[in-house]
Amino acid sequence: MAEAREVLQGTLDLLILSSLRVAPLHGWGIAQEIRARSNEVVLVTTGALYPALHRLAQQGLVSARWQVSDNNRRARYYTLTAAGRRALSDKEAWWQRFVVGVAGVLRHA
């Protein structure tokens, strides 16, 4: 079971980092981005998203700062750091291997 949680967590980190690849986003934006891009298959709850964001910030993979957004609201924007970009490509590579692996398992079932 501990394994499964790690996978989930790892996946959430990957999704977040990946959603920040193009531009800095605030928390709500990240959730919307993931939702839209996955065709509403992957839903990230607030309770999972923010702790994950803060953990990534602590690990130095993203940086956060307050900015005034499009509609003149103050929002906390997250940006990928250099380390974040490296981690993103590592995690992407791991994910590709993982998907191929799982697919292999499924094919032979």
């Binding site: 605030h26 928390g27 709500w28 934006g29 919307q32 607030t46 923010y50 803060h54 307050w66 609201r73 103050r74 929002a75 906390r76």
Partner: peptide, 17 residues
Amino acid sequence: RDFDDELQDHLARDIAH
């Protein structure tokens, strides 16, 4: 405080959306 603000912001955006 940051976190409270952040959640507040999140909520406002979600409602508007």
